[in-house]
Design a protein around this nucleic acid. Sequence first.
DNA 1: AACCGATACGTTATAATATAACAATACCTA
DNA 2: TAGGTATTGTTATATTATAACGTATCGGTT
Lengths: 173, 173
Amino acid sequence: MTSKTTTPRKHAHPAFPGPGHNHVACLSQTLDRAKSAFETRGLRLTDLRLRVFTEIAASHHAMGAYDIIERLGAKGTRLAPVSVYRAIEALTAAGVVHRLESANAYFACHAAHASQRQHIVLSCRTCRTIAEVAAEAVFDAIEDIASVHGFKADTRIVEISGLCAHCVEKASQ
Amino acid sequence: MTSKTTTPRKHAHPAFPGPGHNHVACLSQTLDRAKSAFETRGLRLTDLRLRVFTEIAASHHAMGAYDIIERLGAKGTRLAPVSVYRAIEALTAAGVVHRLESANAYFACHAAHASQRQHIVLSCRTCRTIAEVAAEAVFDAIEDIASVHGFKADTRIVEISGLCAHCVEKASQ
DNA sequence: AACCGATACGTTATAATATAACAATACCTA
DNA sequence: TAGGTATTGTTATATTATAACGTATCGGTT
Ligand SMILES: [Zn+2]
Ligand SMILES: [Zn+2]
Ligand SMILES: [Zn+2]
Ligand SMILES: [Zn+2]
């Protein structure tokens, strides 16, 4: 028999990391995916790029280029802005870092984008956490409306700001 | 009987201004709507704001703040950046100018947003023209996916870059 | 190994975008 | 007209990003 106090079913891989999130393991997988991404594209994940990526992927937050410079500077190596921007360029080209357009900031792709499905960005304005979530219906609707207007879409930016589930819960307490 | 050579039905109010676009009339209506927008909100469309708005609304393109400064400068008044930014802030608050996040630029709202329906931004990478188009299905899909993740959406940015119908046609010739 | 072309990185300077702080002025209302 | 508020002016500075050019490193070829 089932208990009367079953907890609601949660996502196996919740988009927003919860309190129990093991980011050490998360980061390790993210680094592995980054290495694969560079390899399969015939690009080189150099030491500089790896250090910049590790800094960005250290959290699920978006980070400005100058934040990265400061953090790496605190670890001993003061990089010139252009070096960081070049690393970011390579990382975004490899698809392991994305730019949060509405914040002029950069975040690591922690989801396995392996499937070619497109993702939208959810950004919590309280805890600053970023999540990418698959949203085929959104992109289907975009293609529909674009075609109605004879528009041939190329790049699609969908960035939603609001409150993540964890922060909604906290706010209601 | 109908002719065999009927031209395809066009939008009554095409999102992208075509070759025959009468922008003088378009601008006049846009200015009228801006005046109403300020009035109904109890805000003041001052001379500075009107001049900045007129410059932005002079085209269907997005324009950087410093472009505005240069253009107004060429007309005799050299404004400080902060003045233009403050005008832009008032104009966006009134809803008659929007920010193109992916370009750090600003564009006038030429569509009657009177209906509260939300719009997505289509941006042609060839002719640089911006169009806002209603897209309820897109926003419905966004709400769906957000609610799946327990996310309470606040601001929604949808910016699509690509080729407008006019530029698609030119490219295929 | 020596060479070569391509890619990546370092160094310096500067461009482009945006805001802070405070003074002066214009507008509204009493 | 006096007084408070909103707006604008003035100056300085913060933040984000790229240009230009030289040096080093990588990877393949002779
Ligand atoms: Zn994590
Ligand atoms: Zn949150
Ligand atoms: Zn027009
Ligand atoms: Zn076009």
